[in-house]
Nucleic acid binder design. Structure first.
Length: 229
DNA sequence: CCAGACGTTGTT
DNA sequence: GTCTGG
DNA sequence: CCAGACGTTGTT
DNA sequence: GTCTGG
């Protein structure tokens, strides 16, 4: 899964962590604690020359053949197990892989009578790099739009307490293998796997994150009494 | 040949 | 765009 | 992911 | 219940 995440801190962090140049529009990106599908969010792409650039792309992939953009909301995630065959993803998987930077992400655990959101962040306080795919779609009016999706895999042991799926979180040393057009399908396919449990820590948060109109650092604060919310 | 689908999540 | 079903 | 809408006609 | 928007 992974349908909501946070990305905060100075944008220069992205330059350092991903060795990427920052596009002018992405440079204006401010701290976000409730990033949701349909929004413009920073994504790392690698040009054939090897240069990496952070651009703002819209979350929710629109395949090139789509007649309209309504499919986007349903393609905010892509199952890692079937990427290579699915018509919606296979061309992007072959040649348009990207990395989605995140400070952390949210996961909703089903509990009696509702759902309890949790915030999951890197144990080392660095940034996550989610494995992603991107596409360029041109509307009937002729307007091009770049979109992305987050690749998912089965949950590792600690995530399984919340949910059966989780985003593919790349090891920093694997960034280039995922982004490069020179990597063989066999090698970048091996990166689609649950990350080690030790990379993650998690805590329950307020249900306020459920509404995309809510925003701010309080959304990642530990909730004192999750059961009573 | 043309028409129609093409996806994920979670929940039932 | 490309594949499947009819 | 959750929240919120869930419609038609004609006209701009 | 199901789809769209954020």
């Amino acid at each position: 899964m992974c349908g909501r995440y946070a990305l905060y801190g100075p944008v220069s962090r992205l330059r350092e962590r991903f060795s990427a140049n920052i596009d002018e529009l992405a440079a204006d990106f401010g701290p976000r604690y409730n990033a949701a599908p349909m929004q413009l969010l920073p994504v790392v792409r690698q040009r054939p020359s090897g240069e990496r650039v952070v651009h703002l792309l819209r979350w929710g992939l629109i395949p090139g053949w789509a007649k309209d953009e309504t499919i986007a909301t349903r393609l905010s995630n892509a199952r890692g197990e079937t990427l290579a065959e699915k018509p919606a993803f296979r061309t992007a998987y072959r040649s348009r892989r990207c990395i989605v930077p995140a400070s952390g992400f949210y996961e909703w655990k089903a509990i009696p009578g509702g759902k309890q959101p949790y915030y999951i962040q890197p144990a080392n306080d660095e940034l996550f790099g989610f494995a992603g795919l991107w596409e360029r779609w041109t509307s009937p009016a002729g307007t091009p739009i770049d979109t992305f999706t987050v690749v998912t895999t089965e949950a590792n042991e600690s995530m399984r307490a919340l949910h059966e799926r989780m985003p593919v979180i790349l090891q920093p040393g694997d960034d280039n293998l995922w982004l490069s057009r020179d990597t063989t399908p066999e090698r970048f396919g091996q990166l689609i796997a649950p990350c080690p449990d030790a990379m993650l820590r998690m805590h329950p948060v307020s249900k306020a994150v459920g509404n995309v109109r809510n925003e701010g650092p309080q959304l990642i604060d530990a909730s004192s009494d999750p059961q009573s919310q």
